[in-house]
Design a protein around this nucleic acid. Sequence first.
DNA 1: GCGAAGCA
DNA 2: TGCTTCGC
Length: 884
Amino acid sequence: MSIKERFPDGPEPLYLVDGTSFLYRGFYAYPDLQRSDGMPTNAIFIVLRILLRILREERPKYLGFIMDGKGPTFRHELFEPYKAQRPRMPEDMAVQIDPLREAVQLMGLHLLVSEGVEADDCIASLAARHKEERPVVIVGSDKDLKQCLDEQVVLWDPAGKREKVTTLDIFCEETGLTPAQWPDFQALTGDSSDNIPGIPGVGPKTAEKIMAQAATLEDLRDGGAERLPDKLRAKVTEHMEKVFLYRELTRMRTDCCEEHGLEQLRVQPLHTDDLFDFLTTFEFRSLARDLRSMVPEAPTAAEPVAAATGQASLFGTAAPVPSVPPLTLHKAEQPDQLPNPDDALVGLVSMDNGLRIAVQSREEIGSEQQYTGSLPELIDYLARARTVVCPDVHDLLRSDAAWDALPLERWFDLSLAAYLLNPEERNYSWDRLHQSLFQSDPDDPEGHEPADLHPDAQAGAALLYLERVRPKLHAANLETLLRDVELPLLPVLAAMERQGIHLDKQAFRAFLDEVQERIDELTKEIHELAGENFNIRSSQQMAVVLFDKLGLKPAGKTPGGALSTANQVLEKIRSAHPIVEAILQFRMLEKLRSTYLAPLPRLMDDNGRLHTHFNLTATATGRLSSSGPNLQNIPIRGPQGKRMRACFTATPGNLLAAADYSQIELRVLAHFSQDPALLDAFAQDEDIHSRTAALLFDKDSPQAVSGEERRSAKTINFGLIYGMGPQRLARELQVPLSEAKSFIERYFERLATLKAFYDTIVEDAATHGYVTTLAGRRRLLPGLHSRNQQMVSQAKRQAVNTVIQGSAADVIKLAMLAAHQDTVLQELNAPLILQVHDELLLEASESVALQAGERLVEIMQNVTELRVPLRVDMGVGHNWAEAH
DNA sequence: GCGAAGCA
DNA sequence: TGCTTCGC
């Protein structure tokens, strides 16, 4: 939704862009971006990208682009330290300002330079002046700007991955304040980036309390402070005078920039040719592309446009692929003029402004087009093709369930292909894959030159990418995995995501209230024990209080060298001071609150359900990941964990069934290693940790093992699975490093077959450069040949870990596919709704949930045959806790 | 060990 | 960005 759509039918909104803040942000966000002659262009790039996006998506009629002037402002006169800690603007940024101004004007936008005041003041003034007659959209991120919010004034931060819109309502809900109170609030807390100190020890939480007693600083001075606790009152009174000054600094003026009337802010037509030249001169190819997509008549690049020129064809090497005719962006009446797709390859790329299509048949590569027809028609059309090549099928399936209609065998997913070839890249976005076409790749056995490809040819580029990636997949034996597992999993995941899981809002709310109350109590208690108010969430402040002020003995350091306040460290000094206990409690509850209790309810849909994203290309081992929200790390242990999971419920009339593989990783390990002890233990369905403990501690039977011994064995068993090093093991077991090392030695002595297996994997990895899992998934391990011993050890552990964990991931993926396709579950109307690595959740009506759960167990247990049986535990209940 | 997420 | 903590 564009911002504009929030104000339907009214007058045209005025957009005010905080240029300076985006200038800084761009400068630091993309430190390396520069023109080929070395001129830094990062700040210009970001700002122009944002502006182009605003023009494209918002089509504003009135817009002001506001930048700070050069000189000092009235704030520096009021308060000498103001922004004093800020270094002078870096030279690399300064040189970008003039070109940026030029570009802004070429875009037909009105540029305001604030002299003697800051850009913020200018924005506040313009907003105040125009908000009565029309909506105002402030485009920026500075939190000072929140004081401008009003019924008709919204704050929009478009940069970054998740854009943010702040309205008056959101602001009030988040802070409990009115925008007019915001400067008072900021004066109390201070602002480190502007070098405004605020009252020491007063953070947002305390400031909130103060503001609850006194709505303004004046109220506070004239008696409001009396209502505060003694210590706080003393502090407030002491700083009262200065706080008024701070407010002057954060409060924005609303009486400047008077010379800029509405007419001057009217957006003018783009100077298309000049702007295009500008973008070309600064080598902003993607921006030039954006511009062309906005203005079809914009000039195309000088060089001839050719996709895949001279590249080997998919249809053999005989005929060179014909070059693509120059692209024109049809605004067209489709799909009548799309070429015949029968048995052709179709490239399909989803861009911001729509779908792009290129068709490659035996005869020719058609020109690339923007698709503007209906989705069902497109799907019918694509169904006739041989293969539809798409950079992110998951994204399409998510966007519209109609895509499920396209037969699975049609799809080819480029991100999946790239992921399977090397699962350790962190980014498989089309942006990235597309870029890689233009770089020569030393690892490419085909020795492709960088593509000579028109930047506009997105769908054409997808076809080219396919040509490059297919031989690699073939060589790596990954085609089957892609075709039979990963790709078919996409609709399964999309269906699970759409289904979502129901959250009991009332129960959650009650939980949150209790936790919040306890957190408040603990905060008070900790501050009293410490003798001062400090930010308990800040590990740095905490270290000062504990180790300097209270003189406790630090029991460890962070990797960075700072004194650590990690829980494990605090546990050690638990008895040294009562504050430690309180802090540990606080930490636990605060984690619970900030990670789960507070954010999850906000993510619920109208039916009270949460929809996560299951990502198939996120982990190096082949596991799924879950995000937005992450439903794979919901607490389970302890009373809180149980209560939390009890909030995940079936909708009334339904039940949840939870089925989890028992010890799947250790079973996989037993399968691969064929260790007799492990095989036997699983064949007898014995407790595996007791069994290893008996071996480790020379016990005649697993029954003779003590609880402590079993725990040690369990830790090292898991250590092996997770590729834990001796350091980590020592920490987990709370024993010296030497002891952990000898413990590992003994483990491998007693389980010699495991040792042999471990060695085989490492050898294998060293010869091939990679390891493979049960389903043929690969992970490259270049670290194995590093000169750095630590890297080598890590790579060895990763090798073992990947084989075990990745194979387990393969198994459950197969189970998910089987469950999704299972006709029994389909007839029972029992869809999968969640996967948590070794656990599957389904929801079904009360009458059939148990039956469905049992069917799921059957599917999971029989999905593949290992040398040990697969065991699945299952439970049914009204909520996730009960079902376990 | 790995991935997601909150916080300073 | 680094630190911390949750899950597996």
